[in-house]
Amino acid sequence: MTSHPGRMRVITSALQAAEQILAVWPIDDGEVLSAAKYALQSCLEGNLSPGSARFAFIQAAKEAGNCVDEPVRGPPSGKSLRWHKTKPRQRA
């Protein structure tokens, strides 16, 4: 959520998240904010996964009172997704 009521900003990368935290964040300090800054920096350096940095960013946004509209995702299954269906084999 931006400083303008009713306006949302879509963040699609760790770089955009870091820019938001450093430039226009509504609070200046906080334990969760510090952790999020560190996580984003580590992600940009390649030392932390984007998913972990995303989680830290969302927690910092919630701490700052920002509305976060995150998609509902299930837990990772460890299986790769199949984008096409195959016909079942028929036995002779």
Rank of each mutant, 00 (worst) to 15 (best):
H4I: 09
P5M: 07
A64H: 08
E45F: 04
R82F: 03
A14G: 00
T2R: 06
A17Q: 01
M8A: 08
Q20I: 11
R73N: 07
A64S: 14
Y38N: 15
R7Q: 14
N47Y: 10
L40F: 12
I11M: 01
A14Q: 00
T12C: 05
Q16W: 02
Q59I: 03
L40D: 04
V24N: 10
G51W: 07
A14S: 05
R89D: 05
G30A: 07
Y38T: 15
P76F: 08
K85G: 08
S77R: 12
A17S: 04
L15V: 01
R82C: 01
G51L: 13
S13T: 08
I27F: 03
A17T: 01
W83H: 07
R73Q: 14
S34L: 14
M8H: 04
I58S: 00
F57H: 05
L40G: 05
I58G: 00
A39F: 12
A17D: 00
P26Y: 08
S80E: 03
R82N: 09
T2N: 05
K87W: 08
E19I: 02
L44E: 02
L22C: 11
G30Y: 11
P75L: 14
S3F: 12
Q41R: 11
H84I: 12
A36T: 10
L22V: 07
Y38A: 15
A35L: 15
G74W: 03
F55N: 12
L33P: 06
P50G: 04
W83Y: 10
N47A: 06
N47K: 12
S42H: 10
K87Q: 06
G30I: 11
R9L: 12
P71Y: 02
A39C: 08
A92H: 07
M8C: 09
E45R: 13
V32W: 03
S80W: 02
S80L: 09
G46D: 01
L44K: 03
E45V: 01
V72Y: 15
A56T: 08
N47T: 06
K37Y: 10
A61N: 00
K87T: 07
C43E: 14
A56D: 06
G78Q: 01
G6P: 03
E45S: 08
H84L: 09
V32K: 13
A14Y: 00
G46N: 03
Q90T: 15
S49G: 10
Y38G: 07
P50Q: 11
Q90H: 09
S34E: 15
P26Q: 03
A14W: 00
P5K: 02
S34W: 13
I11S: 04
Q16P: 00
P75M: 14
L40Q: 04
T2Y: 01
I27N: 06
Q59M: 14
W83L: 13
T12M: 08
P76H: 05
K37C: 11
G74P: 10
P88C: 08
M8E: 09
A23P: 00
A64I: 06
P5W: 05
A53L: 01
D28R: 15
P75F: 14
E19C: 01
S77C: 03
L40S: 05
C43H: 05
R9Y: 04
N47M: 06
S77M: 07
S52R: 14
V72G: 02
S77P: 01
S34Q: 15
P5Q: 06
I58N: 01
S42L: 11
G6S: 04
R89F: 09
K62D: 04
